[in-house]
């Protein structure tokens, strides 16, 4: 029972990170009509930015600002490539996947060549934080608290933006029908850039929280997280935001349970096996495609 509660807490804090990434990923899919496979890789890159900034200052605000700024800037800098791609190929999400997969490889390879000589980076131990609550096997670290509560706050803010603000309305309008949106005078390119910006903002925040949760990062982390984020989006049904919420959390919990109850190196394979089975049974996702 204690293992269960402990892993449930682990799973929820990990899952809320997946949820944020799934939301950012889906937002770009819905609004810009692209599959940004390199999005989790950008987030890992922002973790490296956090790490670099932490060597000079331990001011939390500065770290968050640096992480968010780097993620937004790079994500928006990538946008013209996808715009050119759409001009050449039309809005073909599969071609956008091929291009973003190349970007992912590029980012991973650059990280493993240039950053920290390719070795994994470790965040300072007080950054991860002491456990703020513990009883038997159950321990809740400050990092987990940041991830869980920060994650919830970010999700709430995201849905507020999307459903309660003028810009959010425009984002949803384009995701439903971009032609009609342009006919009524909504600037498509500008709004698409906005979606990259919002995803970048989410990514930058996630990078800080992931750093606090995991305490380390490596060049290979992008591929690893990327696969899970994309798989969770497919399980939910591509572009389905609310489904992504459920599946992101479920994936985090399932993975943590596998780690808690099964032999170490197999736990990830188990998580992938579960995803695979659901994908094979329901290729359109559990909650239906909305893209």
């Amino acid at each position: 029972m204690e293992i269960f509660v402990a892993q449930l807490l682990n799973g929820l804090s990990l899952g809320s990170m997946y949820v944020l990434l799934v939301l950012g990923f889906n937002l770009m899919l819905l609004v810009a009509k692209i599959i940004q496979f390199a999005y989790p890789h950008l987030v890992v890159l922002s973790m490296y930015v956090c790490w670099a900034v932490l060597r000079y200052t331990d001011n939390m605000l500065l770290v968050v600002l640096a992480s968010v700024a780097s993620c937004i800037v790079i994500n928006i800098a990538i946008e013209p490539i996808f715009r050119l791609l759409a001009k050449r190929h039309g809005l073909d999400i599969n071609v956008s996947f091929v291009v973003s997969m190349s970007m992912a490889l590029l980012i991973t390879d650059v990280m493993s060549h240039l950053l920290n000589y390719g070795y994994p980076i470790a965040f300072p131990s007080d950054w991860v934080g002491k456990s703020i609550f513990s009883s038997g096997l159950i321990a809740f670290s400050a990092g987990q608290a940041y991830a869980l509560f920060g994650g919830i706050a970010a999700v709430v803010a995201f849905f507020y933006l999307l459903y309660r603000t003028r810009q959010g309305r425009v984002l949803r309008a384009i995701s439903e029908n971009s032609l009609l949106s342009s006919i009524i005078g909504i600037p498509i390119v500008k709004t698409r850039v906005l979606s990259y910006g919002v995803a970048g903002l989410l990514g930058g925040l996630t990078a800080v929280m992931l750093a606090r949760l995991l305490g380390s990062a490596s060049p290979g982390l992008g591929d690893f997280v990327g696969m899970k984020v994309v798989a969770a989006s497919i399980l939910a049904g591509l572009g389905n935001l609310k489904g992504g919420l459920v599946c992101g959390l479920l994936l985090g919990v399932a993975e943590s349970m596998a780690i808690g109850y099964l032999a170490g190196s197999w736990s990830n394979a188990i998580a992938f096996m579960m995803m695979l089975i659901i994908m094979l049974i329901k290729p359109e996702g559990l909650f239906g495609i909305r893209a």
Partner: peptide, 16 residues
């Protein structure tokens, strides 16, 4: 915009 409310549709029309 069929997934959005009537009010939201009208607000979108007045975007500018």
């Amino acid at each position: 915009f069929s997934t959005m409310t009537v009010l939201e549709n009208l607000q979108l029309g007045g975007y500018h």
